[in-house]
Structures are given as C-alpha cells and as structure tokens.
Design a protein around this nucleic acid. Structure first.
Lengths: 221, 221
DNA sequence: TAAATCTGATAACTAAAGTTCACAAAGTCT
DNA sequence: AGACTTTGTGAACTTTAGTTATCAGATTTA
C-alpha cells in the first residue's frame, strides 16, 4: 500500500480546514481524505487556532467570513504557532482588494468559491511546495548564518555574488574593495563554513541555494 | 512655499510610472504632478528598470500588460536595484489569481483599472506608508542586529518576549531555561545594545519596535 | 622560460564575545 | 526585623572572531 503511494508520488498532508458552511466543509473533507490526506475540520477561526496549538499542520484552509474571527484575522495567530504553516484564504466574495489584503496580512494564497476538486488539490499542492522551499532553507544552522551576516564585508560579498553570479577570488576581492586578500580570504572561508557560498570545480565562487535564499529574504543593507 | 507643503502635510514623492497606454499615462502624470509629486513616466518595463538604475524612486506603478516584459516580471529586477521601492501592479484584467500571483512575486499592492484620482493617491499613500515601516526598521545598524541574532539563547529570548510581551528579569530567565542569571543578564544587555529589547520604568523587559519588526520578518528558529 | 599575478594555507597576534565568580543594592515575604 | 529572592555590576578568565605577516604552489602573462 505504501509503495503504491510512493509510486504515484503522493504524500500524506496534514490539513486543517476552517469553514462554517457544513456542506462545503464535509465536501472538502471527503475530497481530501479520498486523496489520502489527514484532515481536521472546524467551523470557526478560534477553533482552528486551538487545533493548531495541539497539532502541527502542513496547511490551513481558512474561510474568510465565519462567525467570530475572520480567516484573515487568524493568520497572525496561526503563523505564530507554526511559522511553516501554509495558509490559504477561501472566500466566495473575493475581490482583488480582499485578496491583496489577505496576502499583505500573510496569506500564502487566496482561492475563490466555488472551486472543484482539481482546483482544491492543485492549490494545496502548490502552496505546500512553495512553503517547502522556506522550510528546507531554514533548517540550516541559524547560528552560523546570522554570525556570517553580522559582518558588513561578508554582506557586501553576498550581494556581489548575487548580482554577478560567478566570480573569481581576486575579482570578488576587488569588487568588495578589500586591499588585503588574505583578510578577504578569511571572510570568504567564513561564508563557505556557514554554507552560503561555495566553489565550483574551477575554483570560482558562487552562492549556494541557501545563500540565494538568504540574499532574497534578508534584504541586506 | 515649502511651509505651505508642510502645513498640509504633503511630501513630495518620487514616482515611476510604466504604462503603455499613452492617454492613461499622461492622465496619471497630470494627477500626480498636480499633487506636487515628482513623476517619471515610461511605456515599458525595460525602460522602468533602466530608470531605476539612474534614480531612486519611492514607488513604481507598473502596468501588468505591456509590450515586452510584464510588470510582474520586472518586480525582481526593480527590487534588486532598490529594496525599499514600493511596487504597485496596475491592470484592467485583474482577477483574484493574477493579484495573488503578483503579490507572491513581490508586489506591494495591486490596483484595478479604471481608477479615479482619489483611489490612485490613496493607493500610493498607503503603499508608501507600509514600505516606510520596513525602511525605518532597517536603517538601524545591521551589524549589531545580526550579531545579536547569532546566538540561540538570544533568539529564544526574543521569541518569548514576542509571545509574553512584558516579562520580569527572572521570569524571562527561567522561560529561556538559563540557570545562571548573570550569564543571561549579559545576553539581555547585548539585546538592549542592539536595540531589540528595552526596559520600561518598572524594569520590566519588552521588545522595541525594531525588535518586533525583526521577530516578524526573520522567523527565528 | 622567467616574471608576475592569483589563490590560498599557516602561524602569531589583537579584539571581541561569552562565561563564571564574587559581591551588593533593592524589593518581598514571614 | 531577618531571610530570601530579584536584579543587577565589575573583574577575571576562556573562547571565538578577525587581522596581519610570511610563505608557497598554481596559473597567467611577457
């Protein structure tokens, strides 16, 4: 059974649903359980938050309008409980403005009602995939990354590598305006040790995927 | 003249417009210049990028559909040139999906055509204000902030202060599970020196605005 | 081929970060 | 009042980060 799942590349996802319309809620649960996922369904945002306190979900599908707290209002609470939770806001009355607002408040996606099974599964799959990037990039050692970023010279180096992609030692050294190359060599080694920079077979320096991620998300000054 | 501006609390904003519809473009320029803003208008994304290389804009209003690169595709280029640029995507054919996509790609807001002068000015004002937060929070010394974050004990401390808001020295010390209070005192001083933590008049510790900002944006592990 | 530049290792040193210990003023509890 | 907890300070010390100088193999240039 498990091998079948693996063959068709399906992974069991732990899904939280907050939807006050009972029919739609049951419908969604059916679709997702049929797909082999683990589903917890509640009918308001407050219960979703307490569910998140008990359990680690991969994704939360939050209706926008429910009695009590809205789905968007719950985002910050959910996010605090689980930074890697993918949050999708679901709404029948979606306008561009409400969607933009939800995204600003930290939603990962917005889906409009009505939707069919395919759209639901696709949205879940995509949201999880996008979160996965952040997740994988953040299970690196934060100590060494932050320590590496604590030096302006190293931040400049990362930035230069971000724009020029591939650079030889001395070119990079001159770009960050360091006269002493052995000093620069030290910092480059620190960046390598922190897993932000690597060298290819020709000794040319470039960012690791972690380095690229850090560069994108930390807008270094 | 300047005093009048200050009286009515208007600040000159440096605005970049990329819009291929000449009529709309001229119309927008008129509205914004009448308001006293500095406006640069081009008719494609590529020109917007080169304009951004020459000059530092506060906000870019990018049409989604233009000959050549789309407004959304240009986002990463613009962002790299100026991390503090507010980017608003403008489109006539805005659906929730296109809006969500634009936000995922890094837009700060999405505005639908047609819009009137009031909506335009309001959107600009709001986007600038939201960016301003990030700007003000990031002109603090990044060296000391990253150095402060380089220690797991200090990251735990920040997190606890984020959830409990206000904590006394010993309570905080026990929450982060440190036996030696003088050791903890050292790290707390480091956090204060980095401007992430402060004490109120009753000696109770709490996050500074910078600390709150860092906690939100750096999802610390 | 010789000279110059590039790339990097190593060691010696300085500066900064972090820990531990001893002590003490202030507040709290009984 | 006396004991105890809280909230620190300062000095001594250990560890880590960062700098500088010296050397050396590899590669490029003249």
């Amino acid at each position: 059974m498990i091998s079948t799942f693996q063959l068709i590349r399906t992974v069991t996802i732990n899904i939280l649903i907050a939807e006050d319309d009972a029919d739609l809620r049951i419908n969604m649960v059916d679709i997702l359980e049929l797909e082999g996922h683990k589903v917890t369904a509640v009918d308001c945002a407050e219960l979703a938050i307490s569910a998140c306190e008990q359990e680690t979900f991969d994704i939360a599908l939050m209706d926008l309008l429910m009695p009590g707290m809205t789905g968007v209002e719950a985002i910050s609470n959910l996010r605090q409980l689980n930074p890697f939770l993918a949050i999708v806001i679901i709404t029948a009355y979606a306008t561009v403005d409400t969607a933009v607002d939800a995204m600003k408040k930290g939603a990962d996606s917005v889906m409009t009602k009505p939707f069919n099974a395919g759209e639901l599964l696709m949205t879940i799959k995509r949201s999880i995939a996008e979160k996965q990037l952040l997740k994988s990039a953040s299970d690196i050692d934060p100590d060494s990354v932050y320590a590496a970023l604590a030096n302006p010279l190293r931040r400049r180096t990362l930035k230069q590598l971000g724009t020029h992609k591939q650079l030889k030692f001395m070119d990079l050294c001159r770009l960050v305006d360091v006269e002493d190359h052995t000093k620069f060599n030290f910092h480059l080694r620190q960046l390598k040790k922190a897993g932000l920079v690597q060298q290819n077979e020709n000794k040319i320096y470039l960012l690791t995927t972690t380095g690229q991620f850090v560069l994108q998300n930390h807008n270094l000054s």
